Simulated scan of single mutants.
Amino acid sequence: MRIAFYGSSLLSSYWNGAATYYRGLLRDLAGRGHRVTFYEPDAYERQQHRDIDPPPYAEVRVYPATPEAVRAVVAEAAQADVVVKASGVGVFDDALLEGVVAASRPEAIRIFWDVDAPATLAELAATPGHALHRAMPSLDLVLTYGGGPPVVAAYEGFGAARCIPIYNALDPDTHHPVPPDPRFAADLAFLGNRLPDREARVETFFLDAAARLPARAFLIGGNGWGDKAMPGNVRHLGHVYTREHNAFNTTPLAVLNIARDSMAAVGYSPATRVFEATGAGACLITDSWTGLDLFLREGEEVLVARDGRDVAAHLAALTPERARAIGAAARARIAREHTYAHRGAEVDAILSGEAARKRERSVA
């Protein structure tokens, strides 16, 4: 099928946590015979911080962030069999959604793909005139980055015909063990941008743990932390490019995952970082959230913390041997059950089934 995908960015992970998700899924779908065109705006300096060149599995169309350019790329939805508008493009989101729904052919499959369902659902609840409310009757599917039963129920309550979570996963060709890199040497490393609904949890789980273990080395990567007050044993790296993530995950004794407030509250929302880290064989310590056991087994494949005290206790007791054992067990589990080949097969089956349903309805 010809897929027109309107998202934030495929080429850059700069202020764009969905990049790894897009790349893994679209690469697999292309391998299954789908032809993907990805439309991304030239915004937020992402084109100046590209992680990858345009890939062979998708045609990437970068367009200026202007109304005229948006109208031009929206018109191209008429050529596609599957039209996807992702959440969080960041510019002209409403115009893109309404435009691609209007431009797509009646037989095309129309999808809203939500990469931050808790935030979108909060907007829908607070804004009766939201563009997604208007578009919902015309959508065939809502696919979500995560969220499990609570998100499915909420979307169905807002009138979605079908809502299906497509979770993050591992691309083993991209994320895998590599030799340690001295730049990332630490006892505990955390990678994540500074966001309003994450900062307090970073203070609780990461900075508090660092303060409790002044003799241990802590490392934080991501945008926005430069002016944040931190204990003296915390080193800040700034933006870490995707090509450096394997070494960032392989080198430290352990890697910390911290969900954003909304993701932790809803549950069933493993971040891309969970799969990147475990794919590299890292010993992962994560904050606690509902649904974690669908992906990793506590105590054997992941260490779970309820606060900074727990993180510090895990780290103080962790030997290199146990860290390697946990990392190896997690990597084996994720590779067996949670790769983008698994997710691509899910999406491919969903698209085939939806296409068959639309054909049946058209002849009924």
Rank of each mutant, 00 (worst) to 15 (best):
218 F>K: 03
200 A>I: 02
221 G>E: 11
218 F>T: 03
233 N>I: 15
213 L>P: 06
253 L>M: 13
226 G>V: 08
182 P>G: 03
231 P>C: 06
198 R>K: 15
232 G>R: 15
180 P>N: 08
197 D>Y: 11
217 A>R: 15
247 A>M: 12
183 R>F: 00
198 R>V: 07
232 G>C: 05
240 V>C: 04
259 A>F: 00
242 T>S: 13
221 G>V: 14
235 R>T: 10
235 R>Q: 04
233 N>A: 12
228 K>D: 02
250 T>H: 11
188 L>W: 04
249 N>A: 14
253 L>C: 05
230 M>N: 02
211 A>S: 13
220 I>V: 15
223 N>W: 08
244 E>Q: 15
199 E>W: 10
200 A>C: 01
216 R>D: 02
193 N>A: 15
259 A>H: 13
257 N>K: 07
206 F>K: 02
210 A>L: 07
250 T>F: 07
255 V>R: 11
196 P>L: 05
210 A>P: 03
189 A>E: 08
226 G>E: 15
230 M>G: 01
212 R>I: 05
236 H>V: 05
244 E>T: 01
240 V>H: 03
247 A>Y: 11
220 I>T: 09
252 P>W: 15
199 E>K: 03
201 R>Q: 14
243 R>K: 15
213 L>G: 08
249 N>K: 08
201 R>C: 01
212 R>F: 10
188 L>D: 04
198 R>A: 09
202 V>Q: 00
238 G>H: 05
223 N>A: 13
186 A>P: 02
195 L>T: 11
237 L>Y: 02
194 R>L: 14
226 G>A: 15
195 L>I: 03
207 L>A: 01
204 T>F: 00
